[in-house]
């Protein structure tokens, strides 16, 4: 569950150049550095949070295996790109496709067969799936973290004394891309509108002829694809190993709650805010407690404002679970 945040921040590890650069930085540029790395990791949390929301909106299930999609995305990509030597443009969609298949299996083998679903059994089923996936990943990829070459090299870009890895820009770019595609999907396509209808009221949706089961499957597909994308683009920055999923899931969930569970703009904002808090907390307060900041925010939110900062208390009240 270690994130090896230090690599992201100080540049020890794959990028020795950054180390030298960081030594001459002033406090302001260091602060800027924290903001940039915070937004980068925050974008990943946003993607995980979006994945949570897609499944939650259609099924009202919190998918505890959400983080495993991210882990799988990164590791499958390592195999396809580094080990099998496939071109980035081929390996990327192939890796996303394979993880999506796992998402389909998750729905078909773990969620749908449950006859009397209660929130308790559904949570347990996704937890079961997540440890199953984690165990399989450990057998396939071992316990060591794996690296992936950055998409466009590792020559850092200097930015007001802070250092930007080119990969950071890819992360921001993919977050924007995902938001744009999802917006178009939900606003312009029949399938997207049908999914929104299921989110509002599954019974009414099935009455007007929407195949709710297919929409649930679609939600798992979308969510797995977004998770896999997040895993692929973050691996060149923070590496990836088999047991990263749980921490990513709980932080992504924290981001989703922060923005109001079920809200897409909320998920994006929540993830970015969480990433910033974590990065500033680790840099200015204590790096040992880096992982704890996001979780403390989650607990504080659940205690004081469970509908989230941007969420609507009335909407969260009518949900079944």
């Amino acid at each position: 569950m270690r994130f090896r945040w230090s690599w992201l921040q100080t540049g020890i590890g794959p990028w020795p150049i950054e180390n030298a650069l960081m030594e001459t930085t002033t406090f302001t540029s260091q602060l800027l550095q924290y903001l940039i790395t915070g937004l980068t990791i925050g974008s990943i949390y946003s993607m995980v949070a979006i994945g949570f929301n897609i499944i939650y909106n259609v099924t009202e299930i919190i998918n505890f295996a959400q983080g495993e999609f991210v882990m799988l995305g990164g590791l499958v990509m390592v195999t396809l790109h580094t080990v099998a030597g496939l071109n980035l443009l081929i390996a990327f969609p192939l890796a996303v496709g394979l993880v999506t298949l796992i998402g389909v299996l998750l729905d078909r083998l773990a969620i749908r067969p449950i006859r009397n679903p209660s929130v308790l059994t559904l949570i347990i089923a996704t937890i079961a799936a997540s440890i199953l996936i984690k165990g399989a990943a450990m057998l396939i990829w071992g316990k060591n973290p794996h690296d992936l070459p950055a998409f466009s090299g590792r020559d850092p870009i200097s930015f007001f004394g802070a250092v930007i890895q080119p990969q950071y820009l890819w992360v921001f770019g993919f977050l924007v891309l995902i938001v744009v595609i999802l917006t178009l999907f939900f606003d312009k396509t029949i399938a997207g509108k049908a999914m929104s209808a299921c989110a509002d009221n599954p019974h009414a949706a099935s009455l007007v002829g929407i195949n709710v089961n297919r929409m649930i499957l679609l939600s798992f597909i979308l969510s797995a694809a977004i998770g896999a994308t997040a895993g692929i683009i973050i691996t060149p920055i923070s590496l990836m190993e088999f047991d990263r999923g749980a921490m990513l899931a709980v932080k992504g969930f924290a981001a989703a709650i922060l923005g109001g569970l079920g809200s897409f703009p909320g998920a994006v904002a929540g993830g970015l805010i969480l990433g910033l808090i974590e990065s500033l907390g680790a840099g200015l307060i204590s790096s040992g407690y880096k992982d704890a900041f996001a979780l403390l925010i989650l607990l504080a939110l659940l205690f004081f404002r469970p509908s989230g900062l941007l969420g609507n208390a009335q909407v969260s009240r009518i949900k079944r679970f």
Binding site: M1, I123, A254, A292, L295, L298, L299, L302, F321
Partner: peptide, 14 residues
């Protein structure tokens, strides 16, 4: 339902 599960998961990690 799921809130206690997540809250206790977060608590456990902390």
């Amino acid at each position: 339902g799921h809130y206690l599960a997540m809250a206790t998961l977060a608590f456990g990690i902390i």
